[in-house]
Design a protein around this nucleic acid. Structure first.
Lengths: 341, 341
DNA sequence: ATGAAAGCGCTAACAT
DNA sequence: ATGTTAGCGCTTTCAT
């Protein structure tokens, strides 16, 4: 029972057009009249009907752009699935979702993709932002022009976005620490294969893990951390190096990608039953490793929700003028073991 | 680009009314004409616009009824939150969600609630079904009358529902087994506090757990299983009984409710640091126990999604004529430990 | 059996 | 500054 624009018009003794203008802060309406209309709407608890609104605005297409660093990274398949689900759901609302994929984390390339979207007209943007001052500035510039922005999966400091949608990386690292403690009985010499140092998330994971181990499991220790980019070949080599140079390592953690190459190295060395292995996310390689019992656990961050929610959040802003309660929408951290994959 | 009813009408050289009738299998349209219209729609990949459809049907209210055994069970708070979110989201589509809560699992009471909904006019039903032949028959009768039904949280055999939305209980039991193995280092004498034997889900959990322990952790054994209903007082007594009669027990599992009473007994006996304790779901008591380190892990089943998805599934059927791929929509099983609650 | 037209709640172009 | 009116895509009532 929220009433309609028609009712308000009748009570205020003005036309529906005027009510529409007043309630949407459109120009060309007397201040006092606008105030009166707003008061009436307020008192009757008026909420605009989104469905009708969408239908009426249907002639003009609303474009939500997506820039995503997904190429060559299977993790993002689920994120893309979530985006696609949202796209279908909002299609009838007159919303078009344009997805632009890129490989790696090159700021220049990302800027070009953003630019190409802006040129063709853009009403909102969801992006996995590369950590770069120019990207940050460009995003803030767009936000200044009234284009709402959501960052997802990757957070970027000092951007005035609607929200960051993704996991709490530090917490996911702590969770890893907790699982290492459980699985190893509190005794572990840990080798860590991380990705690019560019990705702040990866660093936070290592920190979080280190924190829990030192607080709760004094007999667990990180022996060595090596960077492998997100490249399987490099990961293979780094894992080889790690395991041959540090024979004392009994626990191996893959902070992001590189699971395929890493596991290959482990198996070639015949260590798959002696090492306790931990990963993040549910890439095909991780699923296989979990099922085979080679990987003890993998910590997931709800990739599908990250994609879906990013679009949904922008949709709510565009059509409903509804902003999320917090500008950090954290997706749940889920531990997966052999039995609940 | 799915085209509109108007375009189809133009191509078929009929009026929009006839197209509408043909495409929705409404009576009063010549068979050949209907065929031709359907063919044209098919060829242009026509998909009706849900938003416009909802607006047009807006004058008639569509009612989704919910019967939920939630009273006195804090687990269902999140389920209700999911239902409420869906209710708000679909309100503008002209959909009213009527929630009827009941306490416990009395079939007679549930039948009365269903009846009261039917009397006032009901277009779809979401229900946590009590395991009872009369309930089953009544649901099937309604389904026969064209009212789509979704069962959530609790599955009920031989009901021709659209879908069951909830967890895989057996699998959740297996997951418990896996966590017991990890946390105890593969050595455990387990006491189990379960709820009513009426709830088949609880039995399946125990079976799943037993299966994993016997397969993967031969030195883990379930010593004793006691029933506590969902009553905290009974749970307190049963836990007391279990721990005093079986002093060898070093691991305690709460299969469903009763965590408050159970933990009270444990603490009074001063065993909170000697026992490994496992629970299901994220009730306030479980969260507190996890944070304090008394509970080692709790296995969750996405209660919010269960509520939200139940309504969404019915919405899709009612407005979109879209049925889910499978009649079993399993929500994810998530392991929570101290660091990812 | 089919067509014509009104209307769902809102927006926007066009009058005044 | 305000009113009027024509849609958005679909359903539904009323004619024919």
């Amino acid at each position: 029972m929220t009433g309609s624009i028609k009712e308000i018009a009748k009570i205020a003794k003005v036309s529906r057009g005027t009510v529409d203008r007043a309630l949407n802060d459109r120009p060309g309406v007397n201040y006092e009249v606008a105030q009166r209309i707003r008061k009436i709407a307020d008192e009757m608890g008026y909420k605009p009907n989104v469905v009708a609104k969408a239908l009426a605005t249907h002639r003009r297409v609303t474009v939500i752009g997506v820039v995503i660093c997904s190429e060559g990274n299977l993790f993002f398949d689920d994120v893309l699935a979530g985006i696609e689900a949202a796209r279908q759901e909002y299609f009838d609302f007159g919303i078009t979702v344009k997805v632009l994929k890129m490989k790696g984390y090159n700021p220049q390339q990302q800027l070009e993709l953003i630019e190409s979207l802006r040129k063709k007209g853009l009403d909102a943007l969801a992006i996995t932002p590369v950590s770069d001052p120019k990207v940050r500035d460009t995003l803030n510039e767009m936000i200044g022009e009234g284009i709402p922005v959501v960052c997802f999966n990757l957070d970027l400091a000092e951007v005035n976005y609607i929200a960051y949608v993704g996991c709490d990386y530090y917490k996911s690292g702590e969770t890893l620490g907790g699982m290492i403690g459980y699985v190893t009985g509190g005794k572990a010499l840990v080798g860590v294969i991380t990705c690019l140092s560019v990705l702040e998330g990866a660093q936070k994971r290592v920190e979080g893990c280190r924190h829990v181990l030192s607080e709760a499991y004094p007999e667990c220790r990180i022996v060595k951390v090596l960077e492998a980019g997100d490249d399987e070949e490099v990961s293979y080599q780094m894992t080889m190096k790690m395991l041959s140079e540090h024979k004392e390592i009994d626990t191996l953690c893959f902070i992001a990608g590189g699971v395929v190459g890493g596991l290959q190295a482990v198996c070639e060395l015949g260590l798959e039953n002696r090492l306790k292995i931990f990963t993040f996310d549910m890439t095909p390689a991780a699923i296989e490793g979990i099922k085979k019992g080679i990987i003890q656990s993998t910590i997931c961050q709800q990739p599908y929700e990250q994609g879906y929610l990013s679009i949904k959040t922008l949709f709510e802003v565009l059509l409903n003028d509804h902003y999320p309660d917090s500008d950090h929408i954290y997706t749940e951290l889920n531990i997966k073991i052999k039995y609940n994959v």
